[in-house]
């Protein structure tokens, strides 16, 4: 069992050090992605014509292999964490932008009208009504983005051991020690599940107002009931 947690000295990290580093490299991009996606999504809600091209761009970005990004970025940001985190940030947009747009659009028409009729201005309405109601949808997006980011960090091993737990995979090949690969894969998976569970917990605490039926779902807004549809 000691083998599992033993990290070769060339990686200059303890096992837990790798775990912390992995989290940092995976979560900062998701956070950055969220900060980018919020205004972008709001623009897409406001200007309907903007949404299809934005979706197209995020999808194309997602289709570019990270290796290709590294080749371009390495001239600017070198063999660093930043080089790994920039593509991860861009990848997260493909999930987060539609999640937030759908979330904000899921605000029932009559709730929207009621807010307007009560004298909410656009900014106040966004912050106090639309965004809070979009929280379940945003969290659904965050969960996908986070788990995928945690798994993708490993690619950083390709540019001078910037892949945190992924570096163990590379070492497993250099040193012909399969246990390192197992340790890398299992740890990454456990990490993904743990962070995902944490996100679910956060969402529950943030949204005590969602009906229990929705709790069992994947957090997607199982839609604002049929009544909203009727109203349209």
């Amino acid at each position: 069992m000691g083998e599992f947690f033993h990290v070769p000295s060339d990686l200059q990290h303890s096992y837990l050090g790798l775990v912390g580093w992995h989290l940092e490299e995976a979560l900062i991009p998701v956070l950055a992605g969220l900060l980018l996606a919020l205004p972008l999504a709001q623009l897409c809600v406001r200007l309907r014509w903007l949404y299809p091209p934005v979706l197209w761009v995020t999808t194309v970005l997602y289709a570019i292999p990270s290796l290709a990004f590294f080749v371009v970025l390495i001239n600017w940001t070198g063999q660093s964490e930043i080089t790994v985190m920039i593509p991860l940030t861009l990848y997260s947009l493909v999930v987060l932008v539609p999640a937030i747009v759908d979330g904000v659009r899921s605000v029932p028409e009559e709730t929207h009208a009621a807010a307007t009729a009560m004298g909410f201005g656009p900014v106040r309405r966004y912050l106090q009504v639309e965004l809070p109601i979009a929280v379940p949808a945003i969290f659904a997006g965050l969960r996908v983005a986070t788990v995928s980011s945690i798994s993708l960090v490993s690619v950083g091993a390709l540019i001078g051991n910037q892949g945190a737990l992924g570096n163990l995979l590379a070492d497993s090949m250099f040193y012909h020690r399969p246990i390192l690969a197992v340790s890398s894969v299992v740890t990454t998976a456990v990490l993904a599940m743990a962070v995902d569970a944490l996100l679910v917990l956060c969402r529950r605490l943030l949204t005590p107002w969602t009906p229990p039926a929705r709790e069992r779902g994947r957090g997607a807004p199982v839609s604002v009931p049929a009544v909203a549809e009727e109203a349209r």
Binding site: P108, E110, T111, A115, A117, V129, T210
Partner: peptide, 23 residues
């Protein structure tokens, strides 16, 4: 002023249009 005007009139809508995230 539009917001002042609206706040001086109660508004009730079909399906109530309550804020689901507020008590």
């Amino acid at each position: 002023p539009v917001h002042t005007l609206r706040r001086s009139m109660g508004y009730v809508i079909q399906h109530a249009g309550l804020f689901p995230h507020r008590t």
